[in-house]
């Protein structure tokens, strides 16, 4: 009896841990979806820190030959992540939307045209919003922005929207 009770407690403890990790992972950075426990490789540039491993892998694999592109997409991906976490907070959602627009402006500068960056950004978003919970959180975030106004950055100053100056990156 005592042995069974101990087992039960052990199973319960494991269950609580799994539940806690799983719940946290719904909206925040989680282990790679592969479930691998292998150490996460360092990002290909400093802007990659803080981006979810699966998103980072996607960006690094898709844009192997351009550090500028990776840096701009990392900037955009990090804002989406923050927007998901803070989706229930209107003030923070507005702040993240401004950050998101700056990241998009950096992408625009980097890719050279709206059509080109839109395609890349949609690809990144599809990898980022890969669960029902994340989609719902993004919809909540987006609803927080209804009725707001957002100012643009002058065309010839778009480079200032980049967290990392593209001219400092090799390619």
């Amino acid at each position: 009896m005592r042995n069974q009770s101990g087992k039960f407690r052990w199973v319960l403890t494991i269950g609580v841990i799994i539940f806690a990790i799983g719940g946290t992972c719904l909206l925040t950075a989680c282990p790679d979806s592969s479930g691998s426990n292998a150490p996460v490789a360092a990002p290909s540039d400093p802007n990659g820190a803080g981006v979810r491993p699966n998103v980072r892998s996607y960006i690094e694999a898709t844009y192997q030959n351009s550090a500028k592109t990776r840096a701009a997409l990392f900037q955009s991906a990090k804002v989406v992540e923050k927007a998901l976490v803070d989706a229930n907070n209107k003030d923070l959602s507005i702040q993240h939307a401004e950050e998101s627009n700056r990241a998009s402006t950096c992408l625009w500068y980097t890719f050279g045209s709206v059509d080109a960056y839109a395609k890349a950004q949609d690809g990144m978003m599809a990898v980022t919003l890969n669960t029902d919970e994340r989609n719902k959180a993004y919809l909540v975030y987006n609803d927080q922005l209804g009725g707001q106004v957002f100012l643009g950055i002058p065309y010839d100053q778009r480079v200032t929207a980049c967290d990392i100056n593209p001219s400092t990156l090799p390619n």
Binding site: N101, D143, L145, G146, G147, V149, F150, L151, G152
Partner: peptide, 15 residues
């Protein structure tokens, strides 16, 4: 010229 977005309410229709 300067540019801005007037982002309109979606009234939950996307959801």
């Amino acid at each position: 010229l300067e540019f801005a977005i007037a982002y309109n309410q979606s009234y939950g229709l996307l959801r």
